[in-house]
Structure formats: C-alpha cells, structure tokens
Amino acid sequence: MGNAVIVTTQMPPDQARALRAAVRAQYLMSLNEHWYADEYRFVPADVRHELILERSPVMAAQKSLMAALSLSLKAVKQS
C-alpha cells in the first residue's frame, strides 16, 4: 500500500473497546446484508467474504480499524 492513509490517535482503553464494539456491530450488520444480497447469492461461501470486502471499501476499512484497535488494546494489556 504505497499511498496508504495513516491515522494516529490516542484514547483510553475503555473508549477503544467501545469503538471496536461499535465498529464490529456495524461490520456484522453490513456483512449480513451483503451475504444474502442477490449480487452474492451464487458466489461460493468460501470466497464470498473476500469478494464483499473487495467491493465494499467501508467494510474493508472497518476490518482494518478493528484489527488495529485489537492490536493496540493487546499491547496496552501486556504493558
């Protein structure tokens, strides 16, 4: 990702956990909507998730944000 956008922020762990939970809830709702949409009905289940992410930049960003939050929370917990 040569021209990636880098976002840096600081927040207390309880806010990070709350944000992660909110983003996860939105992500799961979107995934459920896409999963059963006519557009993906005939896409095999083992590749459907990746195809949805390729076509939905918001969901791909949510997945990256959840991973970054989880990693940061893990680092704080270990220190």
Rank of each mutant, 00 (worst) to 15 (best):
L73H: 07
V43Q: 03
S70R: 10
L65T: 10
L19G: 01
Q15S: 07
A21W: 00
E50P: 00
P13L: 05
H34W: 03
E54P: 00
H49K: 13
S70Y: 05
P13M: 10
K74N: 11
W35F: 07
F42G: 09
W35C: 01
A75M: 09
Q10A: 13
G2K: 15
V47R: 03
R48C: 03
A18G: 10
L69V: 02
N3H: 15
A25K: 15
A16R: 05
S72R: 10
Y27I: 02
A45E: 15
P57V: 08
S79L: 14
R20A: 11
E33M: 11
Q26I: 08
Q26A: 08
M66V: 07
L19D: 08
L28V: 03
W35Y: 12
V7L: 14
P57L: 08
L31Q: 11
L31N: 01
P44G: 02
S72D: 12
E54D: 15
A18K: 14
V5K: 14
I6A: 07
V58W: 05
A25F: 04
R41K: 13
R48G: 01
D38W: 04
A68V: 05
N3Y: 13
V7F: 10
S72C: 11
V43H: 01
T9W: 07
L19F: 03
Y40T: 00
L69T: 00
E33G: 06
V43D: 02
Q78E: 15
Q78V: 11
A68F: 01
G2Q: 15
L53H: 07
A25C: 06
R24G: 06
K63T: 08
M29P: 03
A68M: 05
A60P: 04
A18I: 05
M29A: 12
G2V: 14
Q15D: 12
D14P: 00
Q62R: 08
L51I: 12
V7N: 09
K77M: 12
A18V: 05
V43S: 01
V47M: 02
A21R: 12
I6T: 14
H34G: 00
E39T: 09
P12L: 09
S30W: 04
V7S: 07
Q62E: 13
V5Y: 11
K77Y: 12
A68D: 10
Q10P: 02
V76N: 05
Q62T: 04
Y36H: 15
A45Y: 03
D46C: 00
P44I: 03
Q10T: 15
I6Y: 10
K63N: 12
M29G: 05
L19R: 06
A25Y: 03
R17F: 00
M66P: 02
R55F: 04
H34L: 05
Q26H: 08
R24K: 11
Y40F: 10
N32E: 12
R48E: 00
Q26E: 14
V58T: 07
A21K: 11
A25R: 15
P12C: 01
E50Y: 03
R20W: 03
A67L: 11
V5S: 09
V76D: 13
L65S: 04
R55W: 02
M11A: 13
K77Q: 15
R20Q: 09
